[in-house]
């Protein structure tokens, strides 16, 4: 298991898609505690997805470093990175007619050579991942024919078959109904409890407040606040992040974030 107190740390990250005139990340530094359930919270276009891709190593920052489990990303081989971090993207269009089990088995890739195919042990891991999602009954079904919620479970199982230390999720609840949101949230909590650092992006402060143990607030490619949820989710911080007046209502242990009504 992870012995470092920080799972991911970045220092002075800069990134842009179309040259330095349109920066997406502007000197971004943050530390994500190991084993936390961290929300990256910010308005649309604040650079959340880009940050996730830079953390994954898929996009290379023009300046700055990303360290995962204490080592710079560049020190890992591609296969090591596949065992270290898994990704659940916002949308993962599934080509062709894979069955759910075939699809989850693809998550074993970082444990196999380029010419190898999965064996019985890999099958066992894949089945366990499906079982952990409560989706074992879907194993022979075609993934493309599943409902959105079921697909999300299969994609999560695919990521878990990688047995990662860090799970990156891009807007994991954006397209799901309430029941499926609840299912995904309880799975995310289970994973964090099992020692996996779960990092997810969201534009919804209520999702962050309800799920996360640690919140990173972003605006225009910079970190405004990074703190444990209770400390981070203040009306002042949220108002600054979203650029509108926000208030936080408390109901017992829980809080509800909404726009402040003009009198």
């Amino acid at each position: 298991m992870n012995t470092h107190a920080t799972a991911i740390s970045t220092e002075n990250l800069h990134f842009s898609y179309n040259g330095p005139q349109q920066p997406v990340l502007r000197g971004l530094s943050l530390d994500i505690p190991a084993g936390s359930l961290t929300a990256i919270l910010g308005p649309n276009g604040s650079g959340k997805t880009t940050l996730l891709r830079v953390l994954l190593g898929f996009l290379r920052p023009s300046a700055g470093t990303v360290r995962v489990a204490g080592r710079p990303l560049g020190d890992y081989t591609r296969r090591e990175m596949g065992r270290l971090m898994a990704l659940v993207p916002q949308s993962e269009p599934i080509p062709f007619n894979f069955s759910a089990l075939e699809y989850v088995l693809l998550g074993r890739t970082p444990y196999l050579g380029a010419l190898e195919s999965p064996g019985p042990a890999d099958r066992q891991v894949a089945l366990e991942a499906l079982r952990a999602m409560g989706a074992e009954a879907l194993r022979e079904r075609a993934v493309a024919a599943l409902s959105g919620g079921e697909q999300q479970l299969v994609i999560l199982a695919r990521a878990m078959a990688q047995q990662p230390q860090v799970l990156l999720m891009d807007e994991p609840m954006a397209h799901l109904d309430l029941g499926n949101q609840g299912r995904i949230v309880s799975i995310m909590r289970q994973m964090a409890a099992a020692g996996v650092t779960v990092v997810f992006t969201t534009h919804d402060p209520n999702a962050a407040a309800a799920v996360a143990s640690y919140v990173v607030m972003m605006r225009r490619g910079e970190v405004l606040t990074a703190a444990p949820t209770a400390r981070a989710m203040t009306a002042a911080n949220l108002s600054e992040t979203y650029g509108v007046a926000v208030e936080v209502l408390h109901a017992g242990e829980r809080s509800l974030i909404c726009l402040r009504e003009e009198a």
């Binding site: 993207p89 993962e92 195919s117």
Partner: peptide, 27 residues
């Protein structure tokens, strides 16, 4: 023929294939 199982992974979206420890462009 030898890379046929790998072909499944390379048929996934670029960033997913990358996240699973492949080098999609090269492979």
């Amino acid at each position: 023929y030898l890379m046929r199982w790998r072909l499944n992974v390379l048929a996934l979206p670029e960033e997913t294939a990358f996240s699973m420890g492949t080098a999609p462009g090269r492979e």
